[in-house]
Structure formats: C-alpha cells, structure tokens
Design a protein around this nucleic acid. Structure first.
Lengths: 108, 108
DNA sequence: AAATCTATTCGTAAAATTACGAACAAATCA
DNA sequence: TGATTTGTTCGTAATTTTACGAATAGATTT
C-alpha cells in the first residue's frame, strides 16, 4: 500500500483537532462546557483578545461543528454542539485508545 | 474576572491539538500506533505527500512531543513518545469529559 | 574512492491563521 | 427618532502553515 489518501476518520479527527489548536478556542470550549452562560459578551470577557478576534474564533468552532450559535436579539447565545461533540469525543477516545508501546520493537 | 490569560492546561491542550490538526499528522500517529514498524521510509510510503513534507510533519509532531526519533544509520526510527502521549490522552480525556449539555439553559 | 541509500534541510511559493480597529447591522432604550 | 448596546464583518498586516523539488549530509556498498 502506497500513497494512499487519508481516511474519513483521519480527516475528521484532524478537523476537530485543528479547531482545538488554539488556546483561545480551547478556552472558549472550556467556558461553554462549564456552562456559565453562553452569551458572546461573557465569552469575550474571559478572553484576552479583541471582540473581533473572539467572534472569529467562535466562527471557526462553529464551522468545525463543535459549537452552535443562536441569535437572541440583541445578544447571541453560543453552546456546545452536542452531536458533534460526542463524535469528536469518540474519535479522540479511539485515537488515544489505540495506544501503542506494547510492542518492544518500538517505543522504549 | 476579565481578560485573563490562558491556563497552562489550555495552552498544552491547544499545542497537542494543533499538532494533530492535519490529516497527514493524524495518519502518521495512526500508523505509529499500529506499530507497523517505525522507519521514516515506511511512514512516508503511507502518505500521499512528498518526502520533504513528511519529514516536516514528523518534525512538528516531534516538536509537539507526541513522537520521538532515533537515528539508526542510515535509517531513522520514529515512535510515539509514551510519556507525552499519556499526558495528551489525559488532557483530551479531561477535556471531553467535562461535557456539558446537562444544563437546560444551554444546549438543547 | 565513487556510487548509492536514507532522510533532513534549504529555498521558495501559495494559502491559511491570528489579530486588531473601524465600520456596520440589528435590536432596544430613552 | 436618536442614541445605545451587541456582535459581526471588513480591511489589513504579520506570521505560520503546507507543500514541493533540489541540494545536502551521513552511512554503507561496490
């Protein structure tokens, strides 16, 4: 087998991982996960970045599927996208579960 | 609390996530995890990218701490960095464990 | 010593990421 | 209606990422 393309799982894993590949986005998820309300303003308050940048990060998380937003004029409520969150959790679980290092030929 | 900086955990999470934020790097880890040998050439064979690019991705994974390399002239053997792998596994486990969506105020 | 094998590094280019302030849009308040 | 609040979008700049072929380096083979 050579030069094979990536599997769908690998692509989705990478997609979720990439979305989590920034401290601001991790912090956003941590915050939403703790459930201390979900309004943009409060999320932004937690972050050491400008409003525009926070909005941008939220967009990326939304695009990756990890969160979802709901407009509640004049505010916007964000929350974890449960379905995709569960998928990501499963993917990462499987990924880290496939550990290694049992085989003496490598690792150790 | 406002404009607080990120926690060390968030920064390390983001670091590991970023390293996994590319299908080639996920594929590399999957391959190493399956333990089907660890030489550069064989890793490269699995990937639909140039040698130089594969080497670059391996560097990034190494820099992030997820893998380690050992020179065995004229080859190079790569493997999972067990210690950091366990840390990453724990971080992601905790991260996805802190789920949410129990609170009706948000999510659902 | 010359050729070969293995993998990294170099140089480069295109695209994506990150960040910001300013401008803007939508809804509410005065 | 005009001012205010809330959050997104725009325009922009600096940096990083991704990818490649070519050049290079280290070791072995011929």
């Amino acid at each position: 087998m050579e030069k094979q393309e990536y599997t769908e799982k690998q692509i989705r894993m990478a997609r979720y991982a990439k979305a989590l590949g920034n401290p601001a986005r991790v912090a956003i998820i941590d915050f939403l996960a703790r459930q201390e309300t979900c309004f943009f303003g409060e999320i932004h308050e937690q972050l050491p970045i400008a409003k525009a940048t926070a909005s941008q990060h939220l967009s990326e998380l939304k695009e990756a599927g990890l969160i979802q937003g709901e407009i509640m004029p004049p505010k916007v409520k964000y929350c974890i996208n449960k379905e995709n969150w569960m998928e990501a959790k499963a993917l990462f679980g499987e990924f880290f579960g496939q550990c290694v290092c049992k085989n003496r030929l490598c690792c150790g």
